[in-house]
Computed example of a mutant assay.
Amino acid sequence: MNDEPKPGLAVNRGRRAALALGTAALAAPALVRAAGRPVLHAGDQKGGLRALLESADALKDLPYEIQWTEFPAAAPLAEALNAEAVDSGPIGDAPLIFALAQGVRIKAFAANRSDAYGTAVIVRGDSPIRDAAGLKGRSVATNRGSIGHYVTLRTLAAAGLKPSDVQFRFLTPPDAKLALVSGAVDAWATWEPYTAVAESVDGLRVLSNGRGLWSGLSYIAATDTALRDKRELLADFSQRVQRAQAWANGHMGEYAQVQARIIGIPVPAARLAFERRQTRYVPIDAAVIAEQQKAADFYLQAGLLPKRLDVEGTFTRL
């Protein structure tokens, strides 16, 4: 089914030692301080949260420092959370489930919902594959446990196919895109803003999108340690993000300009990704928890979880 060894979020000994060294220096006192102010070590995916906050001028009068670390996808962000190299970060519902199943000690404290179209299975413009059934016997590149992986599995199931009917190649988004463009794989399963860039810049084609297959839920999660020691910082950060999202929804042009600059993509692609997602923050309520449980149960059925995960305990409210 795939060509990589069994998954595990434990970093290798050398990487863990390096991360542990940085973490140890950051661990005392409980509220890490830079120039006398607390520090929140914020992970980000493709600059999304940072672009959002900066475009909305939502970091004004910040009573603490934010040190950003950018990741190309959820898997390396989850590794950093596991090693406590960052305090928090944005993560989709499927990779959150996958990380928790691997023993990462984190909880989601904020939830948002987006239009699921941009989480998609993409093929080259000249590909002979015209529908999901055409994926049988083909190779698909994505991150293991990502929302792209999840949507691929749901796409296959909807077409009456099994996970074993395709060959998964587990690659980071940049490597997966390169593999697709070069013809090394037949399809690539990814998410925004990679999807928008693929369509508007690279001439790639959406074969299957997440509408009707994926909940559109994503979260901001934090380590148990950060939730214990930096809860007030995380609560303030969450409020700023949610206010910034509301601002951005009404100022798409301005937001797209800042996002494009920070993450290094063309402005039209940034605007397409944002306008299409229509992200809204939502309460962590029974409906959200039920949808998360449904996703976890699907991963169990697909053989990606060793046992059933009860998701209710993986949420917290600040």
Rank of each mutant, 00 (worst) to 15 (best):
S55F: 02
G253C: 01
A295C: 07
R228H: 13
G203E: 08
E254N: 03
T279P: 00
A108G: 14
W188T: 06
L77V: 11
D175H: 12
A56K: 10
V151W: 12
I66T: 06
R105W: 08
P193V: 15
D236H: 06
Q45T: 11
A273V: 04
T69F: 09
N82E: 00
R144V: 15
D229S: 14
V185T: 08
A256N: 04
K294H: 15
A34S: 03
A269C: 09
A198D: 13
I129H: 03
G14P: 04
S208I: 09
E275H: 03
A42S: 14
R211D: 05
I262S: 09
A290C: 04
G212E: 15
L217M: 02
D57L: 06
A141F: 04
L304A: 01
A20R: 14
I265K: 06
A159L: 02
A58F: 03
A184L: 13
K60R: 13
V121E: 08
A221I: 03
G22P: 06
S182I: 03
F71P: 02
L305E: 00
L204H: 12
L305Y: 08
N82S: 04
R231L: 12
A116L: 03
D115C: 05
T316H: 05
G264D: 02
M252Y: 06
D297N: 09
A34W: 09
Q239C: 05
A256T: 09
A260Y: 01
S215N: 02
V123G: 07
A10H: 15
A111F: 02
P72N: 10
K177R: 15
A99I: 13
P306R: 14
A18E: 14
V241P: 10
N82R: 15
A235Q: 12
A184P: 03
Q259G: 06
R211K: 07
A56W: 02
R277T: 09
Y281M: 09
A296S: 11
Q259P: 01
